[in-house]
Amino acid sequence: MNIEHTDEQWTEIIRPKSSLFDIKLKELWSYRDLVLLFVKRDFVKDYKQTILGPLWFFIQPLIQTLTFFFIFSKVAKIGTGKLPPILFYLSGITIWTYFADCFNKTSTIFISNAAVFGKVYFPRLVTPISIVISSMVKFGIQLLLFILIYTYYLVFEKVDIHLNFTILLFPFYVLIMATLGLGLGIIFSSLTTKYKDLVFLLQFGIQLLMYATPVIYPLANLSPKYKSYLLMNPITPIVEAIRYGLFGDGIFDIWYLAYSLLFSIIILIVGVLLFNKVEKSFMDTI
């Protein structure tokens, strides 16, 4: 090697595993256009050549709500507190769907993008981030549906619901869910590159998690013993707090929310570190 070259300006050095904390956020930022294009792609590809197109965003939660209404409210006779079941389920489903989407879709990133990842380099975090954003857009659209039905119940049915100022925290709730969904998703996607069994676990795991979240029943219905178990689930305080903000019925507690926030942030940090480690070698193991 020539010694006179040592002071040359290399723009990049490709090395084996660099440090665990070398996350290259600046590089990620320079790929922001790609994030937006991925969001657009996720949108367009799903509804091209469908007759109803984006209407499916409405149909999915509606049908699910009706199903829940018949099964849990009519057949199983599970109470929904003071709230009309339809409104109760729809709020729960809309919120839950966003979290589950973030989690579900980011958890298979390495496997479903292996073809692209195997050929081109770009910061891999672009993919899960774009998924979280495109799910957020879908969530926004579904929220419109909710607002429509909410208004109907408020104006025509004169239901006793109290919108209150805590709903101003709504963006913050969404952010926690996004953080948690993204964090869990990339943890699983990192692990599934080596241990594919996790894919199977995840499929029903998320479904089970829904039943451990007050989506189809209010937390207040539970005995204190179960309640404390359920509050260990970081999504529980979010769902309850959103319902409190919307209906004045639910549990709003700063400490529970702080717990959710802290939990989500830790999960995200663990996720990013793990993801960062895996993205460099996964092509050889997948």
Binding site: I14, R15, P16, K17, F117, G118, K119, V120, Y121, K280, S281, M283, D284
Partner: peptide, 9 residues
């Protein structure tokens, strides 16, 4: 692949 950063050395 290493040059294009798809995999690590």
């Amino acid at each position: 692949k290493i040059l294009s950063k798809v995999t690590n050395p």
